[in-house]
């Protein structure tokens, strides 16, 4: 994977030179260990600022919409699925994009590493299989990448982009995993335990809306929490208002969420709100055989009606 960057730069330079695209959306080196910053490249001579490593977890789909230019975007498996959703939802036209697909073996969760080391991380290096960090206490520690991935990456079953104009490298093998063990664990709780679980889960929320804003699906011009007429939700820190926000935001992603992990990754207080969207995802798979963002040519489950759709709720 560490060699991907050469091809990313070469392809980006080529596309810009040929005038096939006007800009490339990718990552540049961040100022923080284990953080890269989404960036926009317009000139072929700037492609060397692009980077690719295990710290490119941010979903780039957010940066493609409401633009006129023809855009090349560097897309992991999850980015590609969100691009597909955007195409289905008429947020962007397929023709406006040149997708440089990147087969992905998962992105590193910097919080997990931070929790496992003493002191502060000052430098990070990586090989194909390992992450090496140096701390303020001068220690060097090494982790197997597979052990410190974002949880959604460990459960990913579409690591290869489903839609692309060019693949940067050979496809990687897909994983076979049970994606829903955590959902099942919550389902197995009593109703009282579940109530407690969700109250505790959202207690640290500060309503910064980083989860919503990082999510490529959350593009409503005015989010329901920001509506004044009517005002659906209180604006304070009352636990019910906070939960209402998370519950409804998740529900708005029903049948659309690809579990790209952007919400959890962005959260400054480490809330795993993915347990809500994953429940919806699980129910979509089980009831409608639907997984979001696999093909721009298939209408989503919640957009179509089938006679054999389960309808236990409606009496």
């Amino acid at each position: 994977m560490l060699t991907y960057i050469d091809e990313i730069r070469a392809a980006s330079a080529r596309l810009l030179q040929e005038g096939a695209v006007e800009m490339v959306v990718g990552f540049r080196q961040g100022s923080q260990p284990m953080m890269n910053e989404p960036c926009l490249i317009r000139r072929p001579e700037d492609v060397d600022t692009l980077v690719w490593d295990s710290h490119c977890g941010i979903n780039l789909t957010n940066y493609l919409t409401n633009r006129k230019e023809k855009i090349a975007v560097i897309a992991k498996g999850c980015d590609a699925r969100n691009i597909v959703t955007h195409i289905i939802e008429n947020k962007i036209e397929r023709e406006q994009l040149y997708i440089l697909g990147v087969p992905c073996q998962g992105m590193v969760d910097k919080r997990q590493i931070a929790m496992r080391v003493a002191g502060e991380i000052t430098e990070v290096g990586e090989s194909d299989t390992e992450i090496r960090v140096q701390t303020t206490r001068g220690e060097i520690q090494t982790f197997a990448k597979a052990e410190v991935l974002q949880q959604n990456c460990t459960l990913c079953t579409h690591r290869n982009p489903v839609l692309y104009d060019a693949l940067i490298a050979e496809a990687v093998s897909e994983q076979t995993v049970d994606r829903y063990t955590d959902v099942a664990a919550i389902e197995a709780m009593t109703i009282g335990e579940r109530q407690q679980y969700f109250q505790d889960l959202f207690a640290p929320c500060i309503r910064c809306y980083a989860c919503r804003n990082a999510c490529p699906l959350c593009y409503c011009p005015t989010c329901f929490v920001d509506e004044a007429q009517p005002q659906w939700v209180g604006k304070g820190q009352d636990a019910v208002d906070v939960m209402t926000f998370h519950f409804l935001r998740a529900y708005h992603c029903a049948g659309r969420c690809t579990d790209c992990g952007a919400c959890e990754r962005a959260c400054p207080v480490g809330i795993n709100m993915r347990v809500l969207t994953k429940k919806l995802e699980k129910d979509c798979v089980n009831n409608f055989g639907w997984e979001a963002g696999l093909s721009p040519d298939v209408r989503p489950a919640l957009d179509t009606f089938n006679l054999d759709d389960p309808d236990k709720l409606i009496k």
């Binding site: 989404p38 926009l40 940066y63 910064c208 809306y209 980083a210 962005a266």
Partner: peptide, 16 residues
């Protein structure tokens, strides 16, 4: 324009 490109307009910076 370049400084703001990556921004997702969340309130993390201001709330922290």
């Amino acid at each position: 324009e370049d400084v703001a490109f990556a921004c997702i307009n969340c309130g993390t910076c201001t709330y922290l």
